[in-house]
Amino acid sequence: MGIIASISGIVVLAIFIGFVIYMGIQRLSWDFIVQLPSRFAEESGIYTAWMGTVWIMVFTTLISFPLGVGAGIYLEEYARQNRWSMFLEINISNLASVPSIIYGLLGLGVFVRMMQMGNSILAGALTLSLLILPIIIVSTREAIKAVPSSIRDASNALGASKWQTIWHQILPASFGGILTGVILALSRAIGETAPLIVVGALVYVPFAPQNPLDEFTVLPVQIYNWVSRPQEEFIINAAAAIIVLLGITFIMNGIAVYLRNKWQSKMEW
């Protein structure tokens, strides 16, 4: 019974995915990748959607990677064990479990309206960055923790300053772990739909974005858009786009798992 339960979820998922592939594969073609969206399902493609996804991911990475790793380093290496750091920690684990749509409301209130960025790529990327920041911080801390303290002692004993030790020893030694966490966080961001709808990604975008202040749509939002239409043809489009999205997500996770395994075997000094 344990085995049945264990594999039931996986089997169901496999059936789901098989169904989607069966349904969407007919629509999947080069044209589908490079065509702009259209009123007619057969002529619609995902060009603007995946271009939007690329833009969003580039900016999300640029924003969340330094911030998350920086915060992780601070908490692990600098923050003293006191009430303030306790508070920071509780706050971060709380943020990690705030529903993603709430981040959408934050982005709508702060970035879109208050800072007047409009429904732009920048607003979307900032929103997603805040959303995945807790994941990056937590995995950065785990990776740093895994570096043996003897390395830190050796560097300190040679007269290295705190930052020199972090920069020359701790970060290179923990980089694999940090990278794994960042990729996992980004693969989460790439599938996020709700917060981007709230900051206004569900608009008709006739062209691929040219700069970070342009309006945008992304793959998952495009999928939502197509799923919510009654015509069968659009549903097929959605299935085809899902194949693409799932492909990207699985590849990213595969890379992360590969890196993690490689890094873990290296970490056994």
Binding site: I10, S187, T193, P220, I223, Y224, I235, L246
Partner: peptide, 18 residues
């Protein structure tokens, strides 16, 4: 099992509906 958690929710929505 972790794969179940990495599938985007919009995809699950499609599964539920279709």
């Amino acid at each position: 099992l972790e794969v179940l958690a990495v599938v985007p929710t919009v995809v699950y929505g499609f599964f539920a509906l279709m």
